[in-house]
C-alpha cells in the first residue's frame, strides 16, 4: 500500500537509463512524480531526483544538449537533491571514464575506476554488482538521509566507477570492496547521493526514499 506523503518529486530525464523503476519506487512511497526534460521543469521543482545508468561522458553531453546543466546547478543550491548511481557520480567535479569529462561540480571530488585488485592483490570483479553492507564514514548518520538505516543493512549496487570525494565530511557512507573503503553515499547540506540503487534494494531502499521525501 502506498504511503500518504504528498511530496512532489521531479525526476530528471536525460535519456540515461530506465527511469521507470525509480519513478515506481517513489510513487510506491506516496510521492507525486513528474519527469523533467527541460530547464524550466527543473527550476519549478520542489525536490529533485537525478538517476542515471550508463557512461559519464554521454550523460554529460546529453545534459548539455537539453540545456540542463545550469538549471541543475542552481536548483541543487537550495532544493533537496538526490543523485542515484551515475547521477551521484555526476554531482562531482570530473570523471576519468573514457578520458576526463567535467561533471556538475556540486561536490568537490573525482569519479574514478574501481580498484582492479583487492588490498591483498586478488583480482576484483568489475562491474561491482550485488548487495553490499554500508557503514558510516566519519560523518554521523543521525541527521542524514540514512538516519533510519540500521547497522545490519545491505543495498544493491551496479557500477564500475566510484566517487572519490575530496572532503571526508561529504562522504556519508562507505562499503568494503576488497579491503578498499568505497563511497556508498554522499551528503552536503541539501545535496545527497547514493551509489547503490534504493529502488532495487528492497524495503530498506524504500525507507531511504521515504526519508528523502521528508527532507
Amino acid at each position: 500500500m502506498s504511503k500518504s506523503t504528498s511530496a512532489k518529486v521531479t525526476i530528471i530525464d536525460y535519456g540515461a537509463g530506465n527511469l521507470l523503476n525509480v519513478q515506481r519506487a517513489f510513487e510506491h512511497q506516496g510521492a507525486q512524480t513528474e519527469i523533467a526534460t527541460t530547464p524550466e521543469q527543473v527550476e519549478q521543482a520542489e525536490r529533485l531526483v537525478f538517476p542515471g545508468v550508463g557512461a559519464f561522458p554521454e550523460a554529460m553531453q546529453q545534459l548539455k544538449t537539453q540545456n540542463l546543466v545550469e538549471a541543475i546547478q542552481i536548483a541543487a543550491e537550495q532544493k533537496p537533491f538526490l543523485g542515484i548511481c551515475l547521477g551521484m557520480q555526476m554531482m562531482l567535479e570530473e570523471s576519468e571514464e573514457f578520458g576526463t569529462t567535467e561533471g556538475l561540480k556540486l561536490l568537490p571530488g573525482k569519479v574514478r575506476k574501481l580498484p582492479e585488485t583487492s588490498v591483498s592483490g586478488e583480482v576484483m570483479t568489475i562491474p561491482h554488482m550485488g548487495w553490499a553492507q554500508i557503514r558510516p564514514n566519519k560523518t554521523a548518520w543521525q541527521s542524514s538521509l540514512l538516519a533510519s538505516v540500521p547497522e545490519a543493512n545491505a543495498f544493491y549496487f551496479v557500477h564500475s566507477y566510484f566517487a572519490e570525494v575530496a572532503n571526508e565530511a561529504d562522504q556519508l557512507a562507505v562499503f568494503d570492496f576488497g579491503g578498499h573503503a568505497i563511497t556508498a553515499a554522499v551528503q552536503q547540506d541539501n545535496r545527497m547521493g547514493c551509489q547503490f540503487h534504493p529502488e532495487k534494494s528492497g524495503e530498506m531502499g524504500l525507507k531511504l526514499i521515504e526519508a528523502f521525501l521528508k527532507v
Binding site: W131, P150, N153, G202, E203
Partner: peptide
Amino acid sequence: VRPPQAILEAAS
C-alpha cells in the same frame, strides 16, 4: 548473505 535484520517487513 544479506543479514536477516536487513530484510524489513514489506508493507502489504
